[in-house]
Design a protein around this nucleic acid. Structure first.
Lengths: 362, 362
DNA sequence: CTGAAAGCGCTTACAG
DNA sequence: CTGAAAGCGCTTACAG
C-alpha cells in the first residue's frame, strides 16, 4: 500500500522538474524527445500514471460524459450504451452512467453536474426546461438520444437531439401495410408524450389517410412489456373488431404482442394478424419472432451524438436536432392479405382506388 | 455562459469565509445551523454546487467505481448494470463504465486507474495478475463479478469475486435431468477458461457420475449466439447419437439452441430434446422460450459486490470470494422421459440402479 | 527546451 | 463555531 505516486517522484528519478514530467505526458507539449523518453522510462519504472482528477481541475475538462438512462429492459438501450461508450472511449472520453428510476431525470442530473462532466446524453429520459437551461448557461452540451425535447412552459426549449426519422419510419410501415392489403390497422403507442411514439404514429396515420383509411384501433403500451400485453388483450378482445395488423411503437412491445397473440389469444402471426415493430433489436431477427420492423441506425445515431457533443464542448451551445434515416426490414410477421382484396367490400368501407388515393378523410 | 461559480462566490454573498461554505456542504462538519442555512440559501440563489473533482483531489476519494464490461448482448449484463448502478448511486457512488472489446481488459484498466476510482468491478472480463497486483498495492479494491480469478503464473492470485454457487447450480440441473429420465445429456460450454462454465460443468458431471452416467456429448459455444448455434448443429448433426437433453452454460446460448433446434433442425422441445439454461434472463420467461433454467440472484450478487467494495475502500484489501445460492426454475423445456425408463437398455449402457449410484466412472 | 511559480476549487488541521 | 493558511496533483503562462 505504497503512497500515491506523483509527478514529483518521477521528476526526481528522471532528474527533471515536475513541469517537465507534466509536459512529457501532454501531447504536443514542448519537450525534447530524449527528455520525454527518459521521463517515460522513469514513469514506467515507478508505475506512474498522471492523475486525471488533478488534470481536470486545472484544464476544466473532465473528459467525462454523463449518460442518463431509464430502464435497460428494452434491448435497444444496451446496444446504445455499448456503441456510445466505445465511440467516446476512442475520442478519449469516458462515460459516467446514471440510471434514472423515473423518466424525469432532474434529481439525477444535479448529481452529474457536480462531476463537471463535459457533456450529457440522455436516452429514454428527459429533463425539465429549467435544468436544460442550467446546463446551457453552464456551457455543458446536452443531447437527447432517441427523444426530442418536450414542450416546456415556454414552448419547445432548445436542447439538441438525435433521433431517427420517426415520422418517415411510421409512414413506411403504414404504406407497406396498406400495400399488402391490410385494412384494420391498429397502433400500439409507447409513452403518450414521447416524441418517438408521437412521430411514428403521425407517420402511420399520414400513410393511412393517403389511402383513405383511418386508424382502426389504438392502445397504449408505455414501452413496457407487461403494459403492452394488457393493451394487446384489450385490442384483440372482441373478434368482431379484431385488427388485421398491429404496429407497435417499438420492438420490445411488438415482441410482447407476438407472445400475447400466439401464446394467450391463440392467433397465428402473420396468418391472422400482421405485426410490425420499430428498432430492429437483435431478438427481432431470431427465428421465433422473425419480426418485420424499422431499423434504427444505431451507429449513425451514436456518431451524430458524438459529433454534436464534440462540436459543442468548449464552444457555443447551439441546439441542433439530427434525424437519421431509417429503413424497413421486412421479415416474416407481415402477410399479404389477398383475401381482403378479393373480398366483397363491407358496408361503410371503401376500397382504396387510385381516385381515392389523396382523399384524406382526417 | 457565466463564469464557473465557486465557494468564494457563495462566501461573499453569505458574508462568511470560503471554509465555512465548504463546511456547510460537508455532512457532519462543525457549522452553526443558522450559518449553514444562510450559506445554503446563498448557494441556492446562485445555483452553486460543490465541485466534486476538486473535492476528490483533496479527499483522495472520487466516489467513482469503475465498471468494466464485455459485450452486452447477453441480457444478463444489462440487468447487472442497472441494479449495480442503482445500488451504488444510493451509497453516493457513481459508475464510470468501460466497455472492453476484449476479454482481457488490461488496456482499459490503465485508463480507469487515472481516474482515481475508489474501486473496480469487472463483469465478464478478467485482468492479468500484474494489473490485479497493481490495484491491490494502490489500495483499489477489485471485485470480479460472475467470474473467479483465473490461475496466474503464480497460482490463483487473490482478487475478490462474486458468483453464484455455480457448481451447485450445475449439479441441480444434472440431478433434475437424471431424475426426469434423461440419459444422453450434452453440455454446451461457454468460454473454455471461464470459471462459470467450468464450475457449472463440474457440477453437472458430478450429478451424472452419481447416477452412473457420463457426459454424452460436449461442445463449446463461447457464450456467443452464433457460436452456440454452430455448436448445436454439430451436436445434433447425427440422429444416431442425438442427445436427449442439452444443458447450456447460460440462457443466451440456451435460447440460441432453442432457435436452432426448432428453426433449423426441426426438432421439438421438449418432446425430442430437453433444454436447460443458466441465469434466468427476462426472455427465459417469455412464452416462446419458457426455458427451464437456474436463476442467478442478481440482487444478492449486487449486494455482495457493494459490501465487498465498501468494506475494502479505504481499508485493507483482503480478497474474499462470495458465492450466492441459486435455484432451479422449472419451466417448459424439460420433459419427463418415461419411454427411456421403460426402454430396453442398449448395449454398453447401464441403467442407473441403486447399487450403481456411487459407482463413479470418471 | 526547461524550471520556478501561480493557481484550479476544494478540505482540513490549526488557532482563536 | 469560524477564518486564515496550507496543500491535493496537476497545467500553463512566463522567463530564461
Amino acid at each position: 500500500m505504497k503512497a500515491k505516486l506523483t509527478a514529483h517522484d518521477v521528476a526526481r528519478l528522471a532528474h527533471v522538474s515536475q513541469s517537465a514530467v507534466s509536459r512529457a505526458f501532454t501531447p504536443g507539449a514542448s519537450v525534447a524527445p530524449e527528455t520525454r523518453e527518459r521521463i517515460h522510462a522513469a514513469a514506467r519504472k515507478l508505475g506512474y500514471r498522471p492523475n486525471a482528477i488533478a488534470r481536470s481541475l486545472i484544464t476544466r475538462r473532465s473528459r467525462i460524459i454523463g449518460l442518463v438512462m431509464g430502464c435497460l429492459e428494452n434491448q435497444f438501450y444496451p446496444l446504445v450504451i455499448e456503441r456510445l461508450c466505445q465511440a467516446l472511449q476512442q475520442d478519449g472520453y469516458h462515460v459516467l452512467l446514471f440510471i434514472s428510476p423515473t423518466v424525469d431525470a432532474d434529481d439525477v442530473l444535479a448529481d452529474i453536474l457536480q462531476y463537471q462532466v463535459d457533456g450529457i446524453v440522455m436516452a429514454s429520459t428527459t429533463l425539465s426546461s429549467a435544468l436544460a437551461n442550467d446546463c446551457t448557461s453552464a456551457g455543458i452540451p446536452v443531447v437527447l438520444f432517441n427523444r426530442v425535447a418536450q414542450m416546456g412552459a415556454m414552448g419547445r426549449y432548445s436542447t439538441s437531439s438525435v433521433t431517427s426519422q420517426n415520422h418517415d419510419g411510421g409512414r413506411l410501415v403504414g404504406e407497406m401495410l396498406v400495400r399488402t392489403g391490410h385494412r384494420r390497422i391498429a397502433w400500439l403507442a409507447g409513452q403518450e408524450n414521447a416524441s418517438t411514439s408521437l412521430d411514428r404514429e403521425a407517420g402511420l396515420c399520414e400513410a393511412l389517410s393517403a389511402a383513405g383509411l383511418d386508424l382502426h384501433a389504438r392502445a397504449v403500451g408505455r414501452y413496457d412489456f407487461v403494459e403492452a400485453r394488457r393493451a394487446v388483450l384489450a385490442l384483440f378482445g372482441d373478434p368482431a373488431t379484431r385488427p388485421d395488423a398491429l404496429f407497435a411503437a417499438n420492438d420490445h412491445m411488438a415482441i410482447a404482442a407476438l407472445e400475447t397473440l400466439r401464446g394467450e389469444l391463440g392467433l397465428q402471426v402473420p396468418h391472422d394478424v400482421s405485426v410490425v415493430g420499430f428498432d430492429n433489436v437483435p431478438q427481432a431477427a431470431w427465428p421465433s419472432f422473425d419480426l418485420t420492423t424499422v431499423q434504427q441506425d444505431v451507429d449513425r445515431m451514436v456518431d451524430a451524438t458524438r459529433t454534436l457533443l464534440l462540436e459543442q464542448i468548449g464552444g457555443q451551445i447551439l441546439a441542433r436536432s439530427v434525424a437519421v434515416p431509417c429503413v424497413l426490414v421486412e421479415r416474416g410477421t407481415v402477410r399479404v392479405r389477398e383475401s381482403q382484396r378479393a373480398a366483397a367490400p363491407r358496408a361503410g368501407r371503401r376500397l382504396p382506388r387510385p381516385e381515392n388515393k389523396r382523399n384524406k378523410t382526417r
